[in-house]
C-alpha cells in the first residue's frame, strides 16, 4: 500500500472515540480484527465507556468479565437476563468483582439472573463503595446478600428486589436501618407480610428525615410516608 490510509493517520484516542459510538458488540469484535492499531483502539474505547449494558446479548462469564476488565472507567453496569436465558454464574460475578471499575460503580443491574446466588452477589457487592442503584430482581438471593448490601453500600438510594422470594423482613430491616440514603425499594412478589412492610415504613420515618417509596405487591401504587 503506497499511500497511507487516511483513517490510519487518526490518533488512537480518536479511533477509540469513534468505536465508543458503536451500538453493537459484534461491530466492536469486527473492528478489533482489522489491524493491530484498531485492536488497541477497541480496547481504549472500552476504557472510555461509563455505561456498559449487555441487554439483549447472550453473554457468558468469560466474555462479560473480559469486557468489564477493559472498561475501567465504568459507572453503570447492566447485565440483565437476555431472551436466550441466563449465562452468568457466581464464577462470572467473582471475576467481575476483581475489575478496577467495581469500586466506582454507581449502578448495577443483575435483573433476572437465575444462575447467581448469594455467593456471587456477596463477592461483587462487598467490593463496591459508591453504589446508589441496585437491581437484583428475579434472582434467588436471600437475606445474606441484603446484610452485605446494607454494610457495603451506605450511599444506596434505590433497590429492586422484585420477586426475590427468599428475602425476609430481617433483611429488609437491615437495609432500611443501615442505608440512610435509601429512597425507593421495590418489593413486589416477595413473601414479606404487609404488617412487616408497614413496620418498615414506620421504622424508616423515625430514623430518617427522608421519605421511602415502597413499591410492594399489596399496593398498586407507591406508598410514600413523609
Amino acid at each position: 500500500m503506497d499511500v497511507e490510509a487516511e483513517i490510519d493517520r487518526l490518533p488512537i484516542d480518536l479511533l477509540a472515540h469513534i468505536f465508543v459510538l458503536f451500538t453493537s458488540f459484534t461491530d466492536l469484535a469486527q473492528a478489533s480484527g482489522v489491524c493491530k492499531k484498531w485492536k488497541q483502539g477497541v480496547k481504549e474505547s472500552l476504557a472510555r465507556r461509563h455505561n456498559l449494558s449487555f441487554a439483549g446479548w447472550k453473554m457468558d462469564d468469560d466474555s462479560t468479565a473480559r469486557l468489564v476488565y477493559h472498561a475501567y472507567n465504568l459507572t453503570k453496569l447492566d447485565i440483565p437476563r437476555s431472551r436466550w436465558g441466563c449465562q452468568i454464574t457466581d464464577a462470572g460475578l467473582l471475576r467481575i468483582s476483581f475489575a478496577k471499575c467495581i469500586s466506582n460503580l454507581t449502578s448495577i443491574s443483575l435483573w433476572g439472573l437465575t444462575g447467581i446466588t448469594d455467593e456471587g452477589v456477596v463477592q461483587l457487592i462487598s467490593r463496591t463503595r459508591s453504589l446508589q442503584h441496585l437491581n437484583v430482581g428475579g434472582t434467588f438471593i436471600t437475606d445474606e446478600s441484603l446484610f452485605v448490601i446494607a454494610r457495603s453500600c451506605p450511599k444506596l438510594e434505590t433497590i429492586v428486589l422484585w420477586s426475590c422470594r427468599h428475602v425476609t423482613e430481617s433483611g429488609l430491616f437491615a437495609l432500611v436501618d443501615q442505608c440512610l440514603k435509601l429512597k425507593s425499594m421495590n418489593v413486589w412478589g416477595t413473601r414479606v407480610p404487609e404488617e412487616c412492610l408497614n413496620n418498615l415504613l414506620i421504622c424508616k420515618s423515625s430514623s430518617s428525615d427522608k421519605s421511602l417509596k415502597l413499591d410492594c405487591m399489596y399496593r398498586m401504587a407507591f406508598k410514600v410516608l413523609k
Binding site: M1, V3, A5, E6, I7, D8, A31, V34, C35, W38
Partner: peptide, 9 residues
C-alpha cells in the same frame, strides 16, 4: 473495512 479505508492487513 480494510477495503473501504485502504488499511493494511
Amino acid at each position: 473495512i480494510r477495503e473501504t479505508f485502504h488499511l493494511p492487513d
